[in-house]
Each structure stands twice: as C-alpha cells, then as structure tokens.
C-alpha cells in the first residue's frame, strides 16, 4: 500500500524553503526581463518554460511531491497527460481544418 514507510514524515529544512523562494523570485524577474526581448517564436517557449520550472519547484519542495508516494506523482503526471491530450486533439482539429480545400469547410479567420 504505502510506497515508502518512514515512521515519521520527512521534514524539509528551512534553508531549502528560503532557497526555493529565492529561486522563484529570480525566475519571476527573469521572465519579465525576457518578455521585453524580441526572440520571435521563442518568447512563448521561454515564458512557458520558466513558468514550468517555477511550477516544478513549488510542486517538488513546497508541496512535498519529492517525498510523496509514487502513486501521487503518477497521478499528477497522468493528469497533465490528459490535459495535454485535450490540447492535442483540440489543436489537431483546428489546425488541420482547412488543409483540405473542400468548399464550405474553410474557416476564414
């Protein structure tokens, strides 16, 4: 049942929390800075990349996912998988809708 059986729950030290907080602040500043640089398509990628990194830090350290059971991690990962599934099929439809030149099918933007 339980995937890891310590007798006492793991307690993260204060140093870790402050370090993570510092890193999150730095990343926030970084993402604002990068937003004003013209990187073309890469702007979105970098912005979302930094956000994902911040999210991982919060999940892993603040939410203790690093010490959670395997099932909890699998559950969160598969939830993201299903969210991306929704996105993938949604875009799979909308992006390919007007590839075939069928009258009445082309969506004018």
């Amino acid at each position: 049942m339980a995937n890891h059986d310590h007798d006492t729950p793991h307690i993260t030290g204060l140093g870790t929390y402050f370090a993570v907080f510092g890193a999150l602040m730095v990343l926030t500043a970084a993402t604002v800075f990068v937003a004003f640089q013209d990187l073309g398509m890469m702007n979105n990628v970098v912005a979302l990349g930094i956000a994902t990194l911040k999210a991982v830090l919060v999940l892993w350290f603040f939410m203790h996912l690093g010490h959670a059971t395997t099932f909890t991690r699998v559950a969160m990962a598969s939830t993201l998988f299903f969210f991306f599934l929704l996105l993938a099929f949604l875009f799979g439809d909308t992006l390919t809708r007007d590839l075939l030149d069928v009258p009445g099918r082309v969506i004018e933007l």
């Binding site: 013209d38 702007n43 979105n44 956000a51 939410m63």
Partner: peptide
Amino acid sequence: LGLYWHFVDLVWIFLFPLLYLIGRHT
C-alpha cells in the same frame, strides 16, 4: 490547506506569463 494554497499559487504562475507577458516585445 497548504497543498491547496500552493496549487492556487501554481495557477497564477501560469496565468502571469500567459496573460501579461505574451507579445510584450511586439
């Protein structure tokens, strides 16, 4: 309660770049 609060934080971490930062350079 901590888990819940951090999740609310997580949502904002994504809302901020998506709403405020996209296309700022243009």
